[in-house]
Design a binder for these strands. Structure first.
Lengths: 145, 145
DNA sequence: GACTCTTGCTTGACCATCTCAAGCATCCAC
DNA sequence: GTGGATGCTTGAGATGGTCAAGCAAGAGTC
């Protein structure tokens, strides 16, 4: 079953652009529902995988460390996040999600309506295929075997 | 060949988050190379598909129209873009990419190194499959037959 | 210990992005 | 032509982003 022959990398890149634009819009809207900006939502999402040092957030979000200070300041002021001193290195501050922060992450994920509706058009096998292909394209270098 | 059984929507959503983060970082870096911010790059990318009214850009980029005014101001000042009156409606201004603007878009697309490297790990059939699946998830509602 | 080097975080300055409220010009319906 | 809707701009205020500078703390050397 030849899905559609002749998809060159430029066409795929173009589709990435459109798809990610749609995802980003959906994400931004879901975050706005919680009175969070896209950057704040993205930061909380990273933290949902476990505590991260300020430096680590700056690396993941690909921005200057000084930027993170302000974002965490605002999230901390709202009680969604907490700075904790690192036991091993007193320079380092680990950022931890509070229960309220976890709730916010859940709420955002639950309200990604457009994206979820799109995913619902795939059956289980198609989801598995998409997952495998996307993973190869975007997480190759962090690659476990 | 069962790729990987049991990928539920939440896992796929999670992978979207990571993948789009990687894409966004790559895009931002490529845009920065041209002395453009991510928003400016995204705007130019939209315009590469043809002229768009200010209002249309605001809709596509999912932000307030007043925002677009500033972005286009800066792009126009740098000669990457031009405002043209719409023949049919004198309220509307169509934004057109200049040749310099087209060059900038090409340069950004050419320097999406991480993403291109990831795509190179796929063969032609896998690209076609990924294209078809992504398209179904994210462009269903604009759907031509 | 003292000296230096590096690293992690914060601060301040400066611009870009984003939203909202308000305003103006134009179109459209009546 | 009057009134209402629409397209764009402006200005205020908060957030996001970079850069340069600074402080605190680990790490290596003596």
């Amino acid at each position: 079953m030849p899905k559609s022959p002749r998809v060159d990398p430029d066409q795929l890149l173009e589709l990435f652009s459109v798809s990610f634009g749609a995802y980003y819009g959906d994400f931004t809207a879901a975050a706005a529902r919680e009175n969070l900006t896209a950057s704040q939502g993205k930061t909380l999402g990273e933290l949902s995988r476990g505590p991260v040092a300020m430096r680590g957030l700056a690396d993941t979000l690909a921005c200057d460390a000084s930027n993170i200070t302000g974002i965490i300041d605002r999230l901390e002021k709202r009680g969604l996040v907490r700075r904790e001193p690192s036991p091993g290195d007193r320079r380092v501050k680990n950022v931890v999600l509070t229960p309220e922060g976890e709730q916010a992450v859940e709420a955002i994920r639950a309200h990604m309506d457009t994206t979820r509706a799109g995913m619902d058009t795939l059956d289980a096998e198609e989801r598995a295929t998409l997952h495998a292909l996307l993973k190869r394209v975007f997480t190759a270098r962090c690659g476990e075997s």
